[in-house]
């Protein structure tokens, strides 16, 4: 039988002891590794972020919130001028259009005529 080097025997024992080491990762280590994975996943954020919707695209088109606030202010001002025109605006309107404007929405004559016809 072949003689073995005693040091080799010791080494083989050491190797066997080492191979027997199967440490289970601690909960803390698992948590650290998963936290690293989450932090190192930049594409996850990009991929899971919702695509801009119609509202967002419209906002983008008109220039975002500053533009919206400008539009809103202009709209409110327009409504206000319509409801309660300042006297200067009233005077200007009277000058251009006249004091009174009469707009007939219905052809009253025709209605009257129709009534006459139905009577007789």
């Amino acid at each position: 039988m072949m003689m073995t080097n005693p040091n080799d025997d010791m080494l083989e024992d050491l190797f066997a002891d080492a191979r027997g080491l199967t440490p289970a990762p601690s909960d803390d280590l698992m948590a650290r590794v998963i936290a690293d994975a989450d932090a190192a996943q930049p594409r996850a954020t990009a991929a899971s972020a919702p695509q801009p919707g119609l509202w967002a695209r419209m906002m983008d088109a008109i220039g975002g919130w500053p533009a919206v606030s400008g539009l809103a202010a202009a709209t409110i001002a327009g409504v206000w001028v319509g409801v309660a025109p300042p006297s200067s605006v009233e005077d200007l309107t009277a000058t251009i259009v006249g004091d009174e404007v009469s707009i007939s929405l219905f052809a009253t004559d025709l209605v009257f005529d129709a009534g006459v016809l139905s009577d007789g």
């Binding site: 698992m30 994975a37 996943q41």
Partner: peptide
């Protein structure tokens, strides 16, 4: 899958690979 944004894939990989890496 992880690189495509699947967070669960990282957890499965960690459970599969970490014990051997640590050993």
């Amino acid at each position: 899958a992880y690189a495509s944004g699947d967070g669960q894939a990282a957890r499965i990989l960690t459970m599969r690979l970490l014990p051997r890496v640590l050993a």
